[in-house]
Design a protein around this nucleic acid. Structure first.
Lengths: 166, 166
DNA sequence: GGTTGTCAGTTCATTCACCGAACTACGGCA
DNA sequence: TGCCGTAGTTCGGTGAATGAACTGACAACC
């Protein structure tokens, strides 16, 4: 998004956040990182994003401390992992209003298999499950794509968040 | 944002949500609506957004059922109010990483004055407070602007969400 | 050593969206 | 009738996104 740097309303953290993650593609890159995508080429093929734009976005995310870049792999930092409630809230809203057959992805507590509610709390044990212990799997609203690329296939296989797709 | 309409990953509600609220300015307009802004001119002055862009965004939000337009006033629908967790999550992340003196806005349960946690739950009575019963007031990280416009002044006065600024 | 392939990123011409300022439409109202 | 405020629209200039082609580094293989 890149609101004007001399932004009028400096008193809103929403505006501040959007300066970082509000630009086009950025939050989708972060989502892919949660789902285990780490390599430049995998982001590019999964998102269909122009490579120049991907380069620019990854640089910005590394500069802002949302991702780290270590020997060719991009990974979420703690600051990046802290974006999970944002991703969860947006996925929840989309599921609620644009997915008539139910959520497209189900999240569970990997340890006991309990479903997670809108706040990320496990229905079995009641704790707010940390991101690395969340398992994601296709939900009732999921529709398999016609020509899936290998990265998408891996992403839609039941898996824990942050685990590499390799 | 307006991702290409022939979007590759139709299986992600995050992408679907971003098609609606991911464009530049859109979420700031929604935030203003939560804070009681209802009139075209008030959105324009408070956000400093080009009027043509504001027209386009408001039309899109009405078309998508996030806002209604009734005799010159734009208001959040239930679908729009359902975006509150998204706004709250983004404000929380910005507060956590870009506001060293603490949150810029504090949310309370208007009935008993209890602080709300990250999930919107009242520290006093423990319930998840419905949006119209949430009171917002400047927090410890708030910095009064130099030349505040009347709309900003009204928005930064303690008030309940959705109450008109007039 | 040379060929082939892959991966990560750059370059470039085109298209598109945003920007700011000026302009229009329209309803009060005196 | 003239003036003012609100809510938009129009328009030329500018910057960013797009997609395709290109570069350069590196490794495997023969």
């Amino acid at each position: 998004m890149a609101l004007p740097s001399t932004y009028a309303d400096r008193n809103c953290s929403l505006a501040r956040s959007l300066e970082i993650v509000g630009e086009r593609w950025t939050l989708l890159i972060v989502r892919d990182a949660f789902f285990g995508v780490r390599r430049f080429g995998d982001f590019a093929t999964q998102l269909g994003i122009p490579r120049a734009v991907l380069t620019s976005r990854l640089k910005a995310l590394v500069r802002e401390g949302v991702l780290t870049r270590e020997n060719g792999e991009y990974r979420l930092t703690d600051k990046g992992v802290a974006l999970w409630p944002v991703v969860r809230a947006l996925m929840g809203w989309g599921d609620a209003f644009y997915s008539p057959d139910g959520e497209k992805r189900t999240t569970r507590h990997d340890a006991d298999g309990g479903r997670l509610d809108a706040d990320g709390r496990c229905a079995e044990c009641g704790v707010v499950v940390p991101v690395p212990e969340i398992r994601v799997e296709p939900g009732p609203g999921y529709r398999p794509p016609a020509n899936p690329d290998p990265v998408s296939v891996a992403m839609n296989t039941p898996r824990r968040l942050l685990e590499p797709v390799v």
